[in-house]
Simulated scan of single mutants.
Amino acid sequence: MLKMALFFLVVSLVAGFFGFSGISAATASIAKILFFIAIVIFLVFLVLALMAGQAIF
């Protein structure tokens, strides 16, 4: 998912460079949403891993 966010970020930068502001804004917002979803999933798995690590001891 993070790769998709980086892909949309690159597409947004290229579209902005060539003057397609509407496409640039849309892909930037998609990249931002995917990035935050990836952060939330990472935090959920981090908490689950820490809880599983405590259950062993």
Score class of each variant (00 low, 15 high):
G53Y: 09
L13E: 05
T27C: 13
V10Y: 08
S29K: 08
T27K: 00
K32F: 14
A55Y: 10
S24G: 07
G53Q: 07
L2E: 11
S12E: 03
A55H: 06
G22D: 12
L46A: 15
S24W: 01
A52D: 11
S24M: 12
L13P: 00
K32C: 07
L46W: 10
A26S: 07
K32S: 14
F18R: 09
L13T: 02
L6H: 07
I33M: 11
A28E: 03
I56A: 13
L9R: 14
L13Q: 05
I30V: 15
G22E: 12
F7H: 04
A55T: 10
L2S: 08
A26P: 00
A25G: 05
I23N: 02
S12T: 03
A26D: 04
T27W: 01
G19E: 06
L13R: 03
I30E: 03
G53R: 12
F45N: 15
F8M: 05
I56P: 01
L43E: 11
V44H: 06
F35A: 13
V11P: 01
I33P: 00
F17P: 00
Q54G: 09
F36M: 13
M1G: 10
S12H: 02
A5T: 04
S21W: 15
V44F: 15
L9W: 03
A15W: 00
A31N: 02
I56Q: 10
K3P: 02
V10H: 09
K3T: 10
G16P: 02
L34E: 06
A38D: 09
I23R: 01
A31Y: 01
F57V: 11
I30R: 02
A31D: 01
F57Q: 11
L48T: 05
I37Q: 04
L46N: 08
S29R: 09
S24A: 15
V10A: 13
A49Y: 09
F35Q: 02
F20E: 07
L13A: 08
A49L: 12
A52H: 07
A25V: 09
F8P: 01
K3L: 12
S12F: 00
G16F: 03
G19W: 05
F18N: 04
S29T: 11
F42N: 10
A49F: 12
F8T: 00
L9E: 14
F18D: 02
G16W: 01
S12V: 01
I37W: 02
F36I: 09
V10R: 12
F18Q: 05
